[in-house]
């Protein structure tokens, strides 16, 4: 096992704990937006798609690269935009904009 793999395994294991810890106190009402937000984050696969597409030269690689970039971009862009739309609905609810309803 080389050094690089060892480093990667370390990141992997630590990231598991961080991932669990960081959302452990989420209230029920935020489950859907949070799911959608994490959904956008795994759109990081776009980085991978760009890496494999960049050097593509054979027809097979070009086809795979193109489809991968399209799918991954849809994931990232759609994921963040739809999450924002959901959260937009929550805005201002902490501002006391309806004083009459005490």
């Amino acid at each position: 096992m080389n050094n690089e793999l060892l480093n990667e395994l370390t990141f992997f294991v630590l990231a598991i704990f961080v991932g669990i810890e960081v959302i452990s106190k989420v209230p029920t009402i935020l489950h859907t937006p949070l799911m959608s937000g994490t959904n956008a984050i795994h759109g990081i696969i776009l980085v991978g798609a760009i890496v494999i597409a960049a050097g593509a030269s054979s027809p097979v690689n070009i086809a795979i690269g193109l489809v991968a970039v399209i799918l991954a971009t849809t994931n990232v862009v759609g994921g963040f935009v739809v999450t924002d739309r959901m959260l937009e609905m929550f805005k201002g609810r902490h501002a006391p904009k309806t004083p009459e309803s005490k």
Binding site: E8, F11, I16, F17, G19, V22, I41, I44, G48
Partner: peptide
């Protein structure tokens, strides 16, 4: 995250694992 191991890409590993772990808990 697994694709990240294949590509030796730190960003994919960390972000993918974060989602895998928090998504499982969620």
């Amino acid at each position: 995250a697994a694709s990240g191991f294949t590509l030796n890409n730190f960003a994919l590993i960390v972000a993918g694992t974060l989602v895998g772990a928090s998504g499982s808990l969620l």
